[in-house]
Amino acid sequence: MHELTTPISDETIRSLHVGEPVAITGVMLTGRDAAHKWMIDTFIKKNRQPEGDDLEAYEAIKPLLNGGLIYHCGPVVAGLDTKEYRFVAAGPTTSIREEPYQGDVMRHFHVKGVIGKGGMGTKTLQACQEAPGFYLHAIGGAASLIAQTVVKVLGVYKLEFGVPEAMWVIQVKDFPAVVTMDSHGQSQHAVVEEKSKKVLEALLAKH
């Protein structure tokens, strides 16, 4: 088990390879479908004008993402009435939906690590090689357990996206994950896909 503390250095990222388990301590930002689309449309491709508190939110997340981690997660959050937020359930969501956006978001904000489940594709793998960065696979559905590693909710941006889609700033301790895409161009997902395809072809040839 590699213990990682944010911000994570390039040297540490380069030292990690697919298959290695990690435990993360520090700060990360959640962001999923609505957040990625908003970042791309408003600040990267700029095909929509910032409105409301967009610019304020952008300025606030920039330093958090610079050298930081983005977690594909739509949590269950208690304390919505009092704003004394607490994560109740917080496993990863499927990452591949962010594949069209992730590489560009990584480059724009200098994101070092993406946490989610199910893995991502070649564009994100490419961005991991450039950054250098990595993709960390959390255990899908392990929501109560992961929520216990979220020791504090530090803030939230774009809550109007809804609780699951908002960008929550969280402090974590020993958040468990496995490196499945590394900065050396290796992807465990591509390996499993390829191997299972060969087996599938053999099975399809049988009656």
Binding site: G74, V76, A143, S144, A147
Partner: peptide, 14 residues
Amino acid sequence: NVELSRANSTPICQ
């Protein structure tokens, strides 16, 4: 996680 969710009455998956 399954055991913890049962003990704490929290969602198994978010």
